[in-house]
Design a protein around this nucleic acid. Structure first.
Length: 204
DNA sequence: GGTCACAAGGGGTACACGAT
DNA sequence: ATCGTGTACCCCTTGTGACC
């Protein structure tokens, strides 16, 4: 009640500065109930101090809780704001962590790919070291061109036969079906073999 | 013994409003 | 326009009963 509260506040301030004999004698004869009440009040104060320290610590630790408005100075934020900012900051950290984990995953894949490339290059270097004269008797540019021309001619024939350019839509459809039909690995292999065979016959 | 919920009250601030 | 005053509101602290 209002009265009991007023009394208790009075007794609190008086207990911090005990001065009269009256109060001393009161203290001596303090009932069990009063002692219990005082202990309880003290314990509650201790608990609230711990909570307060927690909020102070949060305000120190959480970057967004540190006052940036210099016109306000070092004014304390309300508890509700400290809590909200802390929640926001934790969510931000979670997102950062997720982003970094994804980055690590991507980098791990890159490392794997680079390791494979490294092994391949080492094999090439080794092969070259073991047989340094390999490739010296390379085919001429003219022969290379003839092979290329032969392959392209063959592809163009099939392309020309199956492609219609009536409309863009039709062209797209034809190109896709041409790729499916005439650019299969087996077909390309046959074309290349055919061209090489033909050139061989021409040369010899 | 620790925690929670509640009521009461204090301090600070923004705002309306009348007096000057 | 300026100043003093009353009021509402927010936030915090404190004491205390109830509960585990």
């Amino acid at each position: 009640s209002v009265v009991s509260r007023a009394n208790s506040i009075g007794s609190t301030s008086a207990s911090s500065v005990p001065n009269t004999d009256d109060e001393d004698s009161d203290y001596q004869q303090e009932s069990y109930k009063d002692r219990r009440r005082r202990a309880h009040t003290q314990a509650e104060q201790k608990r609230r101090d711990a909570i307060k320290r927690g909020y102070d610590d949060l305000q120190t630790i959480v970057p967004t809780c540190q006052q940036q408005d210099f016109s306000i100075g070092s004014q304390k934020l309300s508890k509700a704001i400290v809590l909200q900012k802390t929640i926001d900051y934790i969510q931000f950290l979670h997102k950062e962590k997720k982003k970094q984990e994804e980055e690590v995953s991507t980098l791990r894949k890159d490392v794997t790919a680079l390791k494979i490339m490294k092994v391949n290059y080492e094999q090439i270097v080794k092969a070259h070291r073991d047989n340094p004269h390999e490739g010296k008797d390379q085919v001429s540019d003219q022969v290379k061109f003839n092979v290329f021309q032969g392959i392209m001619d063959s592809l163009f024939q099939s392309f020309n036969a199956s492609i219609s350019v009536a409309s863009f839509q039709e062209l797209s459809a034809c190109v896709f079906s041409w790729i499916e039909e005439h650019c299969k690995p087996q077909t390309l292999r046959d074309i290349v073999l055919g061209v090489l065979h033909q050139l061989k016959n021409q040369l010899y």
